[in-house]
Simulated assay, not measured.
Amino acid sequence: MKQNVLETKRLILRTYDADDLGTLHAILSDPVTMQYWPAPFTLEGSQQWLNNNMKRYETHGFGRWAMVSKSSGQVIGDCGIVVAELDGQLENDLGFIVAKEFWGKGFATEAAEACKQFGFQQLGLKRLCANMAFDHHASRSVIEKIGMTKEKEYINARNRNILTFLYAIEKD
């Protein structure tokens, strides 16, 4: 059952359910949208993404959520926090994916800021991280706009052994 988690001026972030597979796969399988990932997702990969997040809701009380445009009701991306291993450390990883047709409109920044606030205020997290390919300038810009700073660089074995930037922010 879909449940709204966060609301911003233009977005609703809500839980996924099994009905979201087709819409989610259209985003995750797009080669332009997913150009900074190891590869666009297969249908099986999108199903696993969906299943993993639905399990995270039960296990952690959070995960990645569907990013829904209030004006159209359309799922335009994905944003949230997951516990993930980043350069050998377990971290609370804030991430987002926005479908290419919605790039450059501030949706990622709006969703990421809301997730940051949720993580600190509702979940009581003390630290959030984000990681991205060194050349993913748009994601770096989003993360910097919400107050995260680059902590280190590392070679990411989980993403084609490319140089990856790790950003972090601690709760005040």
Rank of each mutant, 00 (worst) to 15 (best):
L28Q: 04
K150E: 15
E58W: 03
A39H: 15
W65F: 15
K150F: 02
T23N: 09
Q89A: 14
W37T: 06
L128W: 06
G61M: 04
P38T: 08
G22K: 04
L163S: 13
F41L: 13
K2V: 15
Y36G: 01
D17H: 05
E101A: 10
R127Q: 14
F134R: 07
G61Y: 01
A66N: 05
I12E: 00
A66K: 04
I27Y: 08
M1F: 11
A168W: 05
Q74K: 14
L43W: 02
H136C: 11
A66G: 05
R10P: 00
Q89F: 14
L11P: 01
R127E: 14
L163K: 12
E58R: 08
H60Q: 03
I162R: 12
A138G: 03
A130G: 15
A99W: 12
R158F: 10
E7W: 01
I12P: 03
F41M: 11
Y167L: 09
G104H: 03
L28T: 12
Q121P: 02
K116A: 06
S29K: 02
H60D: 07
L123V: 11
I76N: 02
W65N: 08
S29L: 01
Q89R: 14
I97W: 09
D172N: 14
N51C: 05
Q121S: 11
I27Q: 01
A39N: 12
S69C: 05
S69E: 07
R56V: 01
D20F: 13
E101V: 10
P38S: 10
V83W: 03
D19S: 14
V75A: 10
W65V: 08
E151G: 07
L128Q: 01
M54A: 06
F134S: 12
C79D: 10
L21K: 04
D20G: 10
E58L: 10
A157F: 10
M132S: 04
Q48D: 13
N53D: 00
C115I: 00
S69N: 06
K2Q: 13
C79V: 14
Q35L: 11
I76M: 08
Q3Y: 05
